[in-house]
Design a protein around this nucleic acid. Sequence first.
DNA 1: AATAGGCACAACCGCAACCTA
DNA 2: ATAGGTTGCGGTTGTGCCTAT
Length: 261
Amino acid sequence: MVGMMGWGANIFEQQEWRKGPWTPEEDKLLSEYVNLHGEGRWSSVSRCAGLNRTGKSCRLRWVNYLRPGLKRGHITPQEEGIIIELHALWGNKWSTIARYLPGRTDNEIKNYWRTHFKKKEKASEKQDKKKILRKIRKHQPQQNCTTTTITTTDKKMSPQAEDVIMRSDEINAFTNYDHQNITTDQDPVVDMPPVTNISYAWTETFPMDGLWGGLWNLDDHSLQAASDHKCKVAIQNQPATANCSYATDYAVNLCNGGFIF
DNA sequence: AATAGGCACAACCGCAACCTA
DNA sequence: ATAGGTTGCGGTTGTGCCTAT
């Protein structure tokens, strides 16, 4: 791995810091040093531990890979929900978001976000809001409440799920709409668009502040139950008002029938 | 079977904030 | 007060694996 292409390692130049993937030997040296002396003083780690790495590189390796307690494996739906909520709240404050996800690193979360949401976000941003609102109006249901059954068991994204993602973008744009200009009298499009054919991660469907605020408040057991079983989502088509914090009054009925806000 | 594209992960870079002498 | 060093953060890129075609 030492000679891997692409990372600019140049073994012929003296005093050049090593770059590229870490070897097990380097990991061992770094781990032993940090376990012995604790974190911090990264610039001296390289000298003291016999590593030809910059302090920055040592810190990053420790924080993102070697540090005890790091979780491995895929982001769970619960974690995804938290990420979405906190990102809506703070934007790209990955380190801040990571503090609320024990065992996950900012790098991991950042990568996850970029992989799963960035493309969609960009596509969404390019869309004209008025066009979106027209679309929403077109799909607006007449009944007062739409109930949809969703599941999280699907591993791969189905075509329907793709549609849901697009809907999610519409909803995002919708929620970003200037609510100060919305009154129940003047614009019926403030009603929630119908959500149907959901077959992928339910967490991608409702990125509204209010919803995730609710999810965030659930305990682990409730969240686990919500993700392990089919969840029913009830959408109340109540119009938003100027003093409504969120886009509208969405109600999500998870498993046991309790609204969470 | 070959290959292109997407995804997950690891690591680097630049910059800003913070710390310390 | 300030300059230099250190640390932390966010953005970006490279690599390998997996999957669909």
